[in-house]
Design a protein around this nucleic acid. Sequence first.
DNA 1: CGGGCGGCCTGGAGGC
DNA 2: TGCCTCCAGGCCGCCC
Length: 276
Amino acid sequence: MPELPEVETVRKGLLQAILHREVKEIAVHNPHLRMRVPGEKLFQWVVGNQIVQINRRAKYLLIALANEVVLLVHLGMSGKLLVVPGGVPVERHDHVVFTLDSGEQLRFRDPRRFGLIDVTRKNTLSRHPRLVHLGIEPFSTSFTSLFCVTTVGQSRRPIKNTLMDASFVVGLGNIYTNEVLFEAGIHPQRETRSLSRQEWQRLVDAVRSVLTRALQAGGTTLQDKGFRNVLNTGGHFQVQLQVYDREGEKCPECNALIVRVRQQGRSTFFCPQCQK
DNA sequence: CGGGCGGCCTGGAGGC
DNA sequence: TGCCTCCAGGCCGCCC
């Protein structure tokens, strides 16, 4: 669900909607997210401060305030950050509501509560326990085939598991990992250490290309309940998906039937003809 | 210590 | 119509 393109889409929406706004009020309706929402700290550190920057690290949104405090938000599976006009009734899963000086509200809505909200000081942000183990950003110029060979080139895990491991490279979830492997023509169950330098290059290129196109499409929204941006509208990349959620359909390249297997407890989709 | 896997959580889909 | 089971999946903690 929210992978890098979705989180980045939300970030762009937040830049338009809430940059330079001041947080006037915070209401925590349900603190029971993946990690307990630190209500007291939010009230003391966030209320009365202006939003001065909105960044992203991996799938975390980092909302920086004028007092050198940073709000961390992770959308988990079903989390949304919505910007709504004042006066709109709060819904059942609006767990945390930030009221801004414009009168609008920023709402964290998350039916499954896999999301996370935390607050930390800017000078210790990089040592935050949720950020400290994260791997490389896929759009970093340091993310090269040589980097991949050096860091995970000896691993015996299936390549799909490696790509989804955020301590290696961040931002890829199940949907985009399937698409990346298809674009690179690599079988998801290949042993990581069996990849040639050329295949790693195809993977690195495919990661950037798939993520770029998904971002241009505003992310992937598979069902009614799926991903939404801050204005509560969906993305369009689902129509460009080549293999994900297309079991039994024809491969767009060779017309072979797309296969689904279970890997790492997750659905894996691939073309048995094109992906070697 | 690399890495596999269970559990968290709810709503929707499908079977009967 | 209603009850049940299964499934979706990011990430952490547990354990081999």
